[in-house]
């Protein structure tokens, strides 16, 4: 997996649900990059929304904490700094405001556990990444909150990892179907102008009821264009209807989805058979799939 991500400078992780092992993947990658790369390699870390809590604030389940090594550069909300037990050197206070205060960039002068909460607006995240790369950070991991529930889009990063797992649903089949749909939406192509295609640019969220009007009114060779995948909230059934009608979907800012990770365990139920889950997921999505419990 590390090999696949070698050429990307900014990598975001999005999760299909809570407890799908996103933080595990993040810790694994941080450690792997540090081992693979040169001596003076600097890793940057930031997030969309809040993550890294000891106990998940939403579901009260045990979560692995984000651990960073000395020298890592972290962009997080001012209010979360007291919860980071690294020794901190403040490098920059940005003008990006979050409910937990401004986004602050610090360097870890010691290893330690951190709480990450970065900019939550796409434009600000773009600027923040540019700022961090200029410090310089060699690679930046962006913790992307829960999939498509954030206003900042993974499209701002060079590569995206989708994390899914048993906590999405009790039914493995359902989890696979939903993941497959999410992969499809995250893989939507960049729109292009063609003479025989009618392009319709949509602003803001694209929902089923929104699509329904076009389903009724438009003919074949129509393309609905959203800003990016994070703005699309269509159900699989609606996507299917659109396809039958000959209406395609595209985005203005495509996401570079490179890897899917799966977690067969769940805090809510017994979990799935790991080998079978991995095999079926590999069958369903045409991307490299890794099991979070067997990454290394």
């Amino acid at each position: 997996m590390v090999e696949l991500l070698k050429n990307f400078r900014t990598i975001s992780l999005v999760g299909m649900a809570k407890n799908v092992g996103k933080t595990t993947v993040l810790n694994f990658l941080a450690e792997a990059f540090r081992r693979e790369e040169a001596e003076n390699f600097t890793l940057g870390l930031t997030g969309i929304g809040r993550d890294g809590e000891k106990t998940d604030l939403v579901t009260h389940t045990n979560k692995p904490e984000i651990f960073v090594t000395r020298g890592t550069i972290i962009a997080t909300a001012e209010g979360l700094l007291p919860l980071c037990d690294i020794t901190k050197e403040v490098i920059c206070v940005t003008d990006f405001h979050t409910p937990l205060g401004r986004v602050v960039i610090v360097r870890a002068l010691s290893g330690g556990f951190v709480q990450i909460g970065g900019a939550s607006i796409t434009a600000q995240m773009k600027q923040l990444l540019r700022l961090m790369l200029a410090l310089p950070c060699d690679k930046i991991l962006v913790d992307g909150a829960i999939s498509r529930k954030s206003s900042a889009s993974p499209a701002v990063t060079d590569a995206t990892i989708l994390c899914t797992g048993a906590s999405v649903s009790r039914s493995m089949q359902k989890t696979i179907t939903e993941t497959k749909h999410a992969v499809e939406m995250l893989s939507l192509p960049l729109y292009h102008d063609a003479p025989d295609v009618k392009n319709i640019h949509l602003l803001g969220a694209v929902t089923d009821s929104h699509a329904q009007t076009y389903l009724a009114a438009e003919k074949q060779n129509t393309c609905l264009i959203a800003d990016d995948a994070s703005k699309i909230f269509l159900t699989p059934a609606m996507v299917e209807k659109l396809r039958i009608k000959g209406i395609s979907l595209a985005v203005r800012y495509p996401v570079q989805l490179v890897v899917v990770t799966v977690n067969p365990t769940s805090p809510y139920h017994a979990g799935y058979d790991g080998a079978e889950f991995l095999a079926q997921m590999r069958e369903a999505v045409k991307l490299p799939v890794y099991d979070v419990l067997r990454m290394c």
């Binding site: 020794t87 901190k88 050197e89 403040v90 490098i91 002068l109 010691s110 290893g111």
Partner: peptide, 22 residues
């Protein structure tokens, strides 16, 4: 320098302890 970290002889001792424990 444009950055800011807290420092004192006492802190240095504690931080050495912290990294040793780590």
């Amino acid at each position: 320098l444009a950055s800011f970290a807290l420092d004192s002889p006492e802190l240095r001792k504690i931080r050495e302890e912290k990294s040793r424990a780590e």
